[in-house]
Simulated assay, not measured.
Amino acid sequence: MRKIIMGLALAASCLVGAGAALAEDAARRITVTGEGVARAAPDMAVLTLGVRHQAATAAEALTATNAGAAAVLARLSEAGIAARDMQTSGLSLSPIWDRSNDHNVPPKVVGFEASNTVTIRARDLSALGGILDAVVADGANEFRGLQFTLQEPGPLEASARKLAVADAIARAALYAEAAGLRLGPVMAIREPSTQTTPMPMMRAEMAMGDAGGVPIAQGELELRAEVVMEFKITN
């Protein structure tokens, strides 16, 4: 029994010693967050436009909207927008109600409204202004947003991540030097789960569409990356 007790005591002592060593090792580390920002001019625009008409009957509203949408799609094809870059994103037909202020009078249908929206990807930004001008002439009377982006965002994302790592290393080295310590090897590295998506950042030198039609400011895209790195430090 005495041997068993002594063995348990020795094991406990070893565990305590190992725990203390781990705690000391963890205490001699520095954790920093690095940020990287990469910028590039956009090479593609995603926009949603549509045709909306009102008429006395549902058939008339739908016919007018269909005709306008067909003309717009044809114009987009002529302008070089590929079929894979055009997608119908909304169709609707709804009654127009006349609601009297008199609560004793029930609302009545006085007409119908139909709409057809399409989302397109424009890969030639130099022609974007002219395309918008042309589709308006062909019947597009509704715009629901324009976003500039990149056809291949991978290289820009990689640049931002590299800059984030370089920033983290520089920060860790600065802190270690200021504390009179030496920066050791990287012990851990991780990327936060929340990532910032590319957002347009307008700058003074923004390019304006000069192909005629609607003026377009392309600006510049900015992508931010963040990385958390843990380093060992020594005296």
Score class of each variant (00 low, 15 high):
Ala41Trp: 03
Asp25Lys: 13
Arg123Thr: 15
Gly139Ser: 05
Arg203Thr: 11
Met199Asn: 01
Val214Gln: 12
Ser89Glu: 08
Ala83Val: 02
Val227Gln: 00
Asp43Lys: 12
Asp98Asn: 15
Ser159Tyr: 02
Met199Leu: 14
Gly130Trp: 08
Gly219Lys: 06
Thr33Asn: 04
Ser92Glu: 13
Trp97Gly: 02
Lys232Phe: 03
Leu163Lys: 10
Pro192Asn: 08
Thr117Gln: 01
Pro185Gly: 09
Gly145Val: 00
Arg144Asn: 15
Ala69Arg: 10
Ser92Cys: 07
Glu142Ser: 15
Asp25Thr: 11
Glu191Gly: 01
Lys108Cys: 05
Val136Ala: 12
Gly34His: 08
Met199Ala: 11
Arg123Gly: 13
Ala20Asp: 01
Thr117Ile: 03
Cys14Val: 13
Ser13Ala: 15
Arg99Ile: 11
Ala179Glu: 11
Thr63Pro: 03
Met86Ala: 09
Gly36His: 00
Gly129Glu: 01
Gly34Trp: 01
Gly68Asp: 01
Ala11Lys: 08
Asp167Lys: 01
Ala56Ser: 12
Ala179Val: 05
Cys14Glu: 10
Thr57Met: 03
Pro200Tyr: 11
Asp167Met: 02
Met206Leu: 07
Ala170Leu: 09
Phe231Glu: 02
Asp210Arg: 14
Leu174Ile: 02
Asp25Val: 04
Asp210Thr: 09
Glu222Pro: 00
Asn101Phe: 13
Asn101Trp: 13
Ala179Gly: 06
Thr196Ala: 10
Arg75Ile: 04
Leu183Cys: 14
Glu60Arg: 10
Arg121Ala: 14
Val227Ile: 13
Asn66Thr: 09
Met201Glu: 07
Asp124Glu: 14
Thr119Gly: 01
Ala79Leu: 15
Asp210Tyr: 11
Asp85Val: 07
